[in-house]
Design a protein around this nucleic acid. Structure first.
Lengths: 344, 344
DNA sequence: AGGCCGGATGGAAACGTTTCCATTCTTCAC
DNA sequence: GTGAAGAATGGAAACGTTTCCATCCGGCCT
């Protein structure tokens, strides 16, 4: 950043000098703490406004040991589901007078811990974050060590008692599978993001398995893919050959669902006539495409806002491990139709 | 945020005490400035690590009058094109050891100025931002007044000499129209975001007009819509009636293009057989949908990264008003095809 | 041997706030 | 008229760093 001769920003001392009072008085007037003569108040306010004085939060933070800043850590900003939850956090934070320091990791553990270090150095008061695996995460261990409040978003730890806001991924997955079964599908496959990189993937897969069992169905094929792998045709081709191919595919998130639909089309299959597809997340663009994407909707914006609110109201300090489950809904869409009648 | 009894974080004084040296020495060792005996260095490092000491950036900032923080202001995080540029900024910033403070405005001027105030109070060293209208913006005036370096992203001011990184919107628009004309389209309409809310809209519209004139074509209908208006059928219906309806529609951004395609389908028209559609931005999901979206691709990630780099290397201080134009490309897609032969 | 140089280290100031405490002044009750 | 209460205000410390300056020391040159 350039260090050109910028006229130094006004400090509280400048205001005090101009108003002819002490800095203590300026502080009191501007913060509305303590009393002051109407004339004094007027003088101070005038001086502050003349100099367009903006109290330095860094001076303030140093004294008060409170930064009014939260950190946000997401795997990726380009996945709409994260972008939207960040938007939710941002809204809630702005509302509450908090600033938001952001970092993204690109699913890279090294970047993740560097980012955490940075946020820690910046003395954020708390963190809203989404990690790969909430049950074993070096970053979360670090946060536990330093006792910094945090709330997970999307993550749903299985064992570790960590505060989080999410949907019930297992139940949500079941809802999808039940819907598919109700539509006559008997061979239901799943496209999942790498299990190692996502506890969500695992839970959603578990729900899929459980619902299939309940319905008396054999699990269809499972394809595990990388999160930024968007060309899936060659991965899907093998399992779509022959008469026994699945009639429905459940993708563990919407980006994968879109990629899946794309791949199916590339392979000459029609959606939903030949194969139905349902996603998970409820990203907005899903409504716009053709066929529109059937998906399990998580309230992403509310997820972010709620997570921030939890942080702010401090539940994560004493109430370690509390969880908030948000409601999900199944959004119908053209990509999910009845099973082809010819197949059995 | 809760104020539970968190064991106070270690300060440089704690480290100094544990290492049996002065705080000056600790600072020097940890920053690699000044000399020190190997033993001293070892002692200090050990103490720092034992206490997991993380220097407070706020103490540091106060002293150094440098925060190593940049602010980012975007209209919306949920528009992928902004999310991606933020990702670019974030990457470049992390690389350079900068933190990123984020704010979004939802196209609301009041929120915008509040956000700017907040960033100013946080003493960001500079700002990367996208505003509604770069030629008249209260927020930018404020920044000019306080002489805070900033670089606009996406904005392309027409008169005001403000530093910015963008594509040549007019030329880009022309490229789209020329392509449409080459495909035989003669009646080309445009769907634009509110002119008041976007200088991009205006420039792209201008390019469209100019290219049509050059091609000897009459301008088709123009529909101005709100940015978060995603149900467009009722807006588009009027201009699609009769034999004189446009055979191609150019949307001033990809979200609008998707909404347009959706609306056309809802109105019973096929894309591209009846009407072709081309967007502007190059968002990633466009490749995944069916039909895949033809669009004018801006290098969003590079836009963000470049803007940050400009800021960092300080060009915006002395070189007020410098502009960087990034290259654009036309990404073909199934949504843009040849004009229907029956129409003339 | 004495003076000097330079390396290692510590003391203290400064950055911009908030806030405790002390001081001055007004006002009111007796 | 005196004392006390309370309002208005200022002085100064504290927060966690960095960095200037001073001090101390050993060793080298002459």
């Amino acid at each position: 950043m350039d260090r050109v001769a910028v006229d130094r920003v006004a400090t509280i001392r400048d205001v005090a000098a101009r108003a002819g009072v002490s800095i203590a008085t300026v502080s009191r007037v501007l913060n509305g703490s303590g009393n002051a003569t109407p004339e004094t108040m007027a003088k101070v306010r005038a001086a502050a406004s003349d100099l367009s004085f903006r109290p330095s939060t860094i001076g303030r933070s140093l004294k008060a040991a409170r930064t009014r800043t939260v950190g946000v850590l997401v795997p990726s900003l380009t996945n709409p589901v994260f972008a939207e939850s960040v938007a939710g956090i941002q809204d809630a934070a702005a509302e509450a007078g908090y600033s938001v320091l952001i970092a993204s990791t690109d699913y890279d553990p090294a970047r993740e811990s560097r980012a955490i270090e940075g946020l820690l150095s910046n003395r954020v008061e708390g963190l809203v974050l989404t990690v790969a695996d909430a049950d074993r995460s070096g970053s979360l261990d670090t946060l536990d060590e330093v006792r910094l409040p945090y709330v997970l978003a999307y993550n749903q730890p299985e064992r570790a008692p960590r505060a989080h806001v999410s949907v019930d991924n297992v139940a949500a997955s079941r809802a999808v599978v039940e819907r598919m079964a109700a539509l006559g599908h008997r061979r239901i496959g799943m496209i999942v993001g790498r299990f190692r990189q996502s506890d969500r993937s695992r839970r959603r897969h578990a729900g899929w398995l459980a619902a299939l069992a309940d319905a008396g169905l054999q699990p269809g094929p499972v394809v595990e893919v990388d999160f930024n792998e968007l060309r899936l045709a060659h991965r899907l081709a093998p399992l779509l050959e022959g008469p026994e191919r699945p009639t429905a595919l459940f993708a563990s998130n919407d980006m994968l669902a879109l990629a899946t639909i794309r791949a199916l089309r590339d392979l000459g299959l029609r959606v939903p006539d030949d194969v139905s597809v349902c996603g998970f997340d409820g990203i907005e663009v899903g409504r716009l495409m053709a066929p529109s994407l059937a998906t399990l909707v998580q309230p992403a914006r509310a997820m972010g806002a709620t997570a921030f609110e939890c942080l702010r109201t401090g539940f994560s300090g004493e109430l370690q491990g509390r969880a908030v489950m948000l409601p999900f809904t199944l959004r119908p869409g053209e990509s999910l139709g009845a099973a082809p009648s010819k197949s059995t």
